[in-house]
């Protein structure tokens, strides 16, 4: 038994070409790189929202396609880049996932909103009354409601202000540590990458240019591509 949580081997999908890497249990992996690099595409492969055209993915040492898809998607929770909420109230959204597995208890709502820095008054709010940033937070809480073991986040704070970013990052950190959640995070923000990531993957045009400890990538990049990227996204 290896202690690999995920292993991707020679993956091809759209722009993503010949990508291989492994990820350990409880690792916090950040995927970053310019727009169109294939970050979202790569992230969607982890919970089979999409399947690779070629290559194999292992999850807990078994091929990903041996798992039941609904259970896998519950266990490996994805927060999509665009926060599309279901019509109804915030609570309707939070209970959608758990209800599919008969696991919803109404007292969960307040705690879930707490993770994303929203008060319990929001539970009964209609989603049409939410701001862009609030929608994004509800979308994150909705995935957390499923109690995932692995959390896949696609730019989860892209439309939030500094203060909320800090609060949510703090809660994510707590969640990851207390509940032993593993994290794969796609982000444009190098600050966020530094704060949340233990390891990082720098992608460009569908290829992994650099993979290593996050600190090392930021302080001592090896490739020209990453050096330039860091310069133009300077901290």
């Amino acid at each position: 038994m290896s202690n690999h949580l995920f292993e991707l081997s020679q993956i091809n999908k759209r722009v993503v070409s010949n990508v291989s890497f492994t990820m350990k249990e409880k690792e916090r992996l950040v995927i970053f790189g310019p727009s169109g690099a294939g970050k979202s595409t790569l992230l969607h492969l982890f919970n089979r929202m999409e399947d690779p055209d070629a290559g194999v993915i292992y999850y807990k040492d078994k091929e990903l396609n041996t798992y039941s898809i609904p259970t896998l998607r519950k266990e490996v929770g994805l927060v999509l880049q665009e926060p599309h909420l279901f019509p109804g109230t915030v609570e309707d959204n939070l209970k959608f996932g758990p209800s599919l597995f008969d696991e919803w208890s109404p007292n969960q709502g307040e705690k879930l909103l707490g993770y994303v820095n929203l008060s319990k008054e929001y539970l009964n709010k209609d989603v049409t009354e939410l701001s862009g940033g609030q929608r994004q937070r509800v979308s994150l809480a909705r995935t957390l409601a499923n109690n995932p073991e692995v959390l896949l986040l696609d730019e989860p704070t892209s439309s939030l202000d500094e203060q909320n970013i800090e609060l949510i990052e703090h809660d994510l950190q707590r969640l990851v540590e207390e509940e032993h959640v593993s994290l794969v995070l796609v982000t444009h923000s190098m600050q966020q990458a530094k704060r949340l990531g233990t390891t990082g993957i720098y992608m460009e045009e569908g290829k992994i240019k650099e993979h290593g400890q996050m600190e090392k990538l930021l302080s001592d990049p090896e490739t020209e591509e990453l050096k330039q990227f860091l310069q133009s996204n300077s901290i």
């Binding site: 259970t71 998607r73 929770g77 599309h84 279901f86 599919l100 909705r142 995935t143």
Partner: peptide
Amino acid sequence: RGKILAALSLGAT
């Protein structure tokens, strides 16, 4: 589309 993708990603059939 977006809502359906969200539902699927939460484990919906």
